[in-house]
Design a protein around this nucleic acid. Structure first.
Lengths: 190, 190
DNA sequence: GATATTTCTTGATTTATGTCAAGAATTTGA
DNA sequence: TCAAATTCTTGACATAAATCAAGAAATATC
């Protein structure tokens, strides 16, 4: 549980006291491969730090699964809108491999507001960081070709490519699995 | 200034007291066509409600202007990351027509935290709403063709198409001006 | 460990969209 | 109001990426 505390610290820049308090609210949890962290339509009642494993956030449109994002160890996973405002989730979240999480319930999460000084600042920073990441993603679709998006993503997530079906990565990058396969081969033989 | 108060109310769901206090912090401001609301690299020190006019958020990559977003009356404009965390702005924001704004300075904005009960909840809702909108935009690039993106956007922003150069709309939707022109003609003669 | 299932690769082909260019239409500014 | 500048449209063509299909490779399951 050391890595988790360090990550919390790095993520939120917390004081010693706050860190141990917050950390104590997170409980270890395991999800088997294929199991769901969350179903679309349900309320997301937890925020989890991924210790090990990989989760896929997706949605089915016209019978086709569209992968919105793939979340990996060292990052958090939740459905932000649903978690914050108790609206129905717009996404499915499923484990692509056996996954261990540190999870805080919505209940405990709400306590942080009273218990941690300036928690709202930390929370704001968290959401705004997510927002900026999405801004970059939109921009990547406006300014890059499929190949450029691949290169960009590949350099930041090299490990992922050997661990999960590439059709999901393709979907997340907005291209067909065949196109990803071809780009990948071209890239590797360069 | 009635519309502005109503909009503030609708946007943030405020109590009577809070509404008038917040509203008093916003000052009217005018930007001429072509002038900049913000330059990339600078800090964004204001949050503005667009009363009239249109603003374009963009960035230049490889000598090509990419339009990230076009903001219209009834909505707010700012560079969220820069405004919240005092980082350099990643975007240029320029008026596409003569624009009147109601603007709150960062200074005044910071006071709201002490002065308005539960301001952090309102603020959180604001950012999270922006986040959800970007989620949808990413999804539109993963799941729709250029034509579908056009149709989707057109139905929600019919008025915009006669008011500003279409090249900007094309860029924002991730297609060339020629493609937008063709799709548009096809769509109008149907 | 062998078989069934899923995923990946590759080629052939089609389709969507980009690029270039030129003239038409519109807007701007003196 | 007219000339200049900008934007839009359209056609011809080029290119990127999707689709379909079939076999190869990898993975899961008993």
């Amino acid at each position: 549980m050391q890595t988790f505390n360090q990550s919390l610290q790095a993520y939120f820049d917390l004081k010693e006291n706050d860190l141990s308090k917050i950390s104590s609210y997170f409980k270890s949890e395991t999800i088997e491969k294929g199991e769901f962290f969350l179903h679309a339509g349900n309320q997301c009642k937890k925020l989890s730090f991924i210790n090990e494993g990989i989760l896929r956030i997706f949605n089915t449109t016209d019978g086709k699964e569209i992968t919105q994002w793939i979340s990996t160890p060292g990052y958090f996973v939740t459905e932000i809108s649903s978690f914050m405002f108790e609206t129905p989730s717009r996404w499915e979240i499923q484990a692509l491999s056996k996954t261990t999480l540190f999870t805080i319930s919505k209940e405990k999460y709400q306590k942080l507001n009273q218990e941690i000084e300036n928690w709202h600042l930390i929370e704001k920073a968290f959401i705004a960081k997510c927002f900026a990441m999405l801004e970059d993603r939109v921009y990547s679709h406006l300014s890059m070709t499929a190949e450029e998006r691949f290169e960009f993503f590949f350099h930041q997530n090299r490990a992922l490519f050997n661990e999960i079906p590439q059709q999901y990565i393709a979907s997340m990058l907005g291209m067909s699995p065949e196109t990803l396969s071809r780009i990948r081969n071209k890239s590797l033989t360069k």
